[in-house]
Amino acid sequence: MTSALLVLRAGSAVTVQDSGRFGYQRLGVSPAGPMDPWSHRLADRLAGNPEGSAGLEIGPGVLELEVRAERVRIGLAGAVRTVTLDGRPRPWWSALSLLQGQRLALGPAATGVWSYLAVRGGIALPPVLGSRSTHTLSRIGGLQGRALRAGDLLPLGEAEVPGDLPDLVLAAPPEPVDGPIRVVLGPQEAWFTEAGLATFLGAAWRVSARSDRMGYRLEGPRIEHARSPNIVSDGIVFGSIQVPGSGQPIVLLADRQTTGGYPKIATVIGADLGRLAQTAPGGSLRFAAADLAGALAARRHARERLEAAVRSLAPIGGGGTLEPAFLLSVNLVSGVTAGEP
């Protein structure tokens, strides 16, 4: 029998995501990929996968799965949820072994929005244009290019899961970072007045309910344009902040369009993308300007936080830290970095 996970119940926004679909933006193909890339990487490391493997991104709703394999190894990271295995509570930020017929249930996100379930060996759906990431608007990737629903069967890649592998939990999960979302201004900052730039950097912005994987709309004071709010379309990146004629900014995220015709006032730095994506509708945030050097330092810091979290893995229920040799044996310290956003 092919190893698989059977979906028993899924909220509206559960999709298969790897690190994203790169190389085809010139032909209009959105990279998709995880909304919170750092949590996606951490889930992979917990499952013992190379970073960027195909796993599940779980939106605010619930997820219930049944194991259709002798034994699978999963990693859980991102927005914290309740976890039960056949009704018995298990911890979040964990690496768990699941057996044939067991049922895993994840509750709704307590704080944040996006959670990640990685499974050792990855989800083995056929790649489209080199990636298994789901882009629902293009109807490609993942399972038939759509969000998952009850009855879906997810085939798993081949992976060895030793029977004596203990269940583990992060003793020191990544701590929440406070403070403003850092941005590099531009590339069209000159399309805004000085007052408009001051509004952008000074105001508290509320995440609109009209927000999804394509982008988060922000509500607040009107940002003043110095010129027309239309430009000749140019390229978009993960975290581009465009300001249409309404003066209300839109942060473009994982499912972003490749090009756009509104001036972009700033770009969210890579280190803070996940933090922004985890701000739920109704939540508020502020922006602060950074330069390229600051953005790169923040990125190195985010990488260090991830590695420190992985080093804190310990058996569930105490029992001290694990020997480096053991960590190596479960492939936790040999993560491959691929597909950085």
């Binding site: 000749v232 990146v237 490749t258 090009t259 390229l292 790169l296 990125r299 597909g339």
Partner: peptide, 23 residues
């Protein structure tokens, strides 16, 4: 350099900051 995105009047060069020094 990860990929190049040509548009009407500009070229966007996507890179991986863990593989190249942006400056």
């Amino acid at each position: 350099v990860v990929e190049l995105l040509p548009t009407y009047r500009s070229l966007l060069v996507h890179y991986d900051p863990e593989r190249v020094e942006p400056e």
